[in-house]
């Protein structure tokens, strides 16, 4: 019910009597109120494109959780291999790239006599991998720096608030979760015939003998120039 209004109470009888405008405003308020109270909310689409009768934009947060956008950098996770161990090889690239220095890594070597397939082609694993989530500025540099795709921020959950600073120290068992990642370039897949390698844990030309000097296996072709006899 649109009509031209001059906004001048001296000319406009409708403005000067005041009551019709008051009722009109009350009607608009009441209509929006009842619409929002009993109308159906269309939660699936974006707020501006919603078709439901109720146009309430407020999210009832703990009950309704909005979906985080595609590139949202959430809580970190250490990506497991398909045998459940972390893919991390403790190279310290993420800890070096981290501007907040919130990653602490302690490297350990795999046992050479361990008969796990991965332990012959990977030297190190993180004995301790700790992220201080209260220092982390969620920049994602660790994810970009990682050469092994071992740390990701694709959990789409935020770090929960806590009562104490100590609760934000996330060790490996809190970080290692999610689906395992498998790449054809993974060393434990790339070396097909590495079931029983001739060398244990070392490259062929740099094997150190019991006396401490380097031994060269002359029986097989050595890929690098022989510089020692």
């Amino acid at each position: 019910m649109s009509y031209p209004a001059s906004q001048n109470p001296h000319e406009d009888i409708r403005e000067s009597t005041y009551v019709p405008e008051l009722l009109k405003g009350m009607a608009i308020t009441a209509r929006v109120f009842w619409r929002n109270l009993f109308g159906e909310r269309d939660l699936t689409t974006r707020v501006v494109e919603r078709k439901g009768l109720s146009r309430v934009a407020t999210i009832a947060y703990p009950e309704e959780k909005p979906v985080y956008p595609e590139g949202y950098r959430g809580l970190h996770r250490l990506v497991p291999r398909d045998d459940g161990r972390p893919r991390c090889v403790a190279c310290y690239m993420c800890a070096t790239a981290c501007p907040a220095q919130c990653i602490y890594i302690e490297a350990a070597e795999y046992d050479p006599v361990d008969d796990l397939r991965a332990s012959r082609v990977i030297e190190k694993y993180p004995k301790a991998f700790v992220i201080d989530q209260l220092r982390c500025v969620v920049c994602g540099f660790c994810v970009e720096a990682c050469p092994k795709d071992a740390i990701r921020m694709d959990t789409f959950t935020h770090t929960p608030p806590e009562y104490s600073r100590q609760s934000f120290i996330y060790p490996v068992d809190k970080l290692l979760k999610g689906t395992a990642a498998v790449h054809p370039s993974d060393p434990w897949y790339r070396r097909e015939g590495s079931g029983e390698p001739a060398h244990v844990h070392k490259e062929a030309h740099t094997r150190i003998g019991p006396a401490g000097r380097v031994e060269v296996d002359t029986g097989k072709p050595v890929p690098v120039t022989r510089f020692l006899k």
């Binding site: 947060y61 703990p62 959780k65 909005p66 989530q133 209260l134 982390c136 500025v137 969620v138 920049c139 935020h158 770090t159 929960p160 608030p161 806590e162 009562y163 104490s164 600073r165 934000f168």
Partner: peptide
């Protein structure tokens, strides 16, 4: 209460 995040999401603040 400590809220992590740089800056935290509104959901974290409500939590």
């Amino acid at each position: 209460v400590y809220i992590p995040g740089c800056p935290p999401r509104p959901e974290q603040v409500l939590d």
